[in-house]
Design a protein around this nucleic acid. Structure first.
Lengths: 339, 339
DNA sequence: GTTAGGTATGTAACCGGTTACATCAACTGA
DNA sequence: TCAGTTGATGTAACCGGTTACATACCTAAC
């Protein structure tokens, strides 16, 4: 079942079939109707590979996310998808599972399928991958973190500034023992930047940085709850916990509930991402609102412009907002013992 | 940059280049080395469309999920991805957003890209779509629900049986006023089947079905919390709530906490999906464990077999397990007033 | 009546790999 | 020494659309 076969049956040439499908206004109405009737009778679906192959445009944009488990990426993905769809482009979603090797394989696959743009999560990766994309003149954009290298366009919020704001807030509320739960900084540059912000904020306020108050964990709620349990049950527990991710903050919140550590009376919590669930739990969880949707739209728009009009992708910073809710309170004036 | 260009530069034919890349053992070691050196020097990435186009094998499997927000699909997706990757196939993930129109468009796109298999979520869709897939001899499998039509192979658990078990459990604990929060049954056949099971279980036990105790809602935690609030603050509130989805169950749990309705003393809860978070909240949430991973693996294996060896996909039922946790308790013997 | 311009359609090259088949050299064994 | 076999490589058709260009026909204007 090819356009040649249809052409024979309709008594026209292949070009007319192709035109009837792609540019219906360029064939005579009666011819068009005859062809479309055949197409629907035989349920003909043209081969997209052949089409993109000969037209030299794939209409494809690739998105590489580190995980699909975290629903913050779902919102991001949907924003991108909607934007691309409106522009007549399709999205290829790929999950790198926080692995550099898998990601490299994915990027290669995307180049093989000749995508017209790539949206990446995080900036930290082998320079060879960036070079490969540039070599194939595939516009790309980094999201969720900003590369220090100006040649790598990033459409992102400022992880460092956002985390700084959260930690500074805790400090301004009088907290001096502040714990941190964050992602694994080796494989997650967002976590690394938030970690840096945490440490710098403490130093700036002459608060000693204590490695024992920091816990790097993969983003699983059970693991996070255990990590929080360990922090909170120390002899000298922190009075506040900054969690570089809402999943981890929720794990911490539930762990505290289980241990009868009162939030925010005994310990203050601030999360990151501002997932919808933060507004529903008890107490509602303070969190850094991340403009995932806006960021996705801007990234998609930039790639659409690049693919359509050859406009180079330029970086952009979108704002975050610290949402203060019931999980955060001033430190008890005295160093009240917990429990 | 094509294999023809490389062939000229290497002083060999295009066939040798192609072989050096696809079947390295079929070219002389020295020739191979010379070619591969050129390939890496010029960062040559062969055009995948041309490759699949001429070899008549795309190595692609499509997955259509109704949402990527719910992490239960993440586990499912990852299981599929791992299985396919091991078999040398790639996964195309597409999000239908609970829309039949979007789904139809996606399926068409998948056929256009000549995928070698399709994994669908839910069985209820226009028969024309199934016919189209069959017409193109694309093996497909339905997951997450079982089609009553035997010609539509389903690898799934039994929604009706699983929901029945949960409701029967509540009844056996003495509950007589049992509410239901579920997805929108018009667009979600899983929700519809669970709804049916709920109603049938009540009738079987001579418990009057009260439509006011049922709330169909999209899977958003805030919306679910509001729905639960409405149910629980009725004059004559239910003593148990079956939630056909953990997101909704969590919304209900947090709403109850906020209203000072004690779980499970005042109201028992059972969810569905057994997300990791159910084990961390307080009290831990009873839930129907769904073998998402197993189901994904089985679906992937079936399609691999179909694509590789032409073995027709056959249906299969995987088991669920009701996980009883702290959110469920026997009904208070008298009809104690809540609050 | 001739020519210019427009519309509908056909012809065929082309996109960039893959692979069946052909070719040729080198080696094996009688 | 020569037929037979093996291994390495080349030739060219092919996958199924798209589209530049050619062609044929019709209408309108001078």
């Amino acid at each position: 079942m090819t356009i040649r076969w249809l052409a024979r049956h309709a008594g026209v040439s292949v070009a007319t079939i192709s035109r009837a499908l792609r540019h219906p206004d360029r064939v005579a109405p009666e011819t068009r109707e005859r062809i479309l009737k055949l197409v629907s009778r035989y349920q003909f679906v043209p081969d997209g590979r052949a089409a993109t192959f000969s037209s030299r445009r794939t209409g494809l944009v690739g998105l590489v996310v580190p995980t699909i488990s975290n629903s913050i990426y779902a919102e991001f993905t949907e924003a991108i998808q909607n934007r691309l769809q409106a522009a007549g482009l399709s999205l290829l979603i790929a999950n790198a599972n926080y692995s550099a090797e898998i990601e490299a394989g994915i990027i290669r696959k995307l180049i093989e399928s000749r995508v017209e743009g790539v949206i990446l999560t995080g900036y930290k990766r082998d320079a060879a991958l960036y070079n490969l994309l540039r070599h194939y003149r595939i516009p790309f954009v980094v999201t969720w973190s900003t590369s220090p290298e100006p040649a790598i366009p990033s459409i992102s919020f400022d992880n460092y500034a956002a985390a700084t704001e959260a930690v500074e807030m805790l400090i301004s509320l009088g907290h001096r023992r502040i714990g941190l739960i964050c992602g694994v900084t080796d494989i997650n540059d967002r976590a690394a930047q938030r970690f840096d912000a945490y440490r710098s904020a403490l130093l700036r306020h002459k608060i000693r940085f204590e490695p024992e108050l920091v816990s790097e964990q993969p983003f699983e709620i059970e693991v996070s709850a255990e990590a929080a349990t360990r922090l909170v049950t120390r002899k000298n527990p922190p009075t506040a916990l900054f969690c570089a991710n809402d999943i981890q903050a929720l794990g911490a919140l539930f762990a505290c509930q289980r241990l009868n550590v009162r939030v925010p009376e005994d310990i203050s919590l601030i999360g990151f991402d501002d997932l919808p669930i933060t507004r529903v739990v008890n107490p509602p969880l303070s969190s850094v609102h991340v403009p995932a949707k806006l960021m996705g739209q801007a990234a998609a728009d930039a790639l659409i412009d690049a693919a359509r009009n050859g406009i180079p992708v330029t970086g952009q910073t979108v704002g975050t907002e610290l949402m203060m809710r019931g999980s955060t309170a001033p430190a008890a004036s005295a160093n009240t013992k917990i429990r």
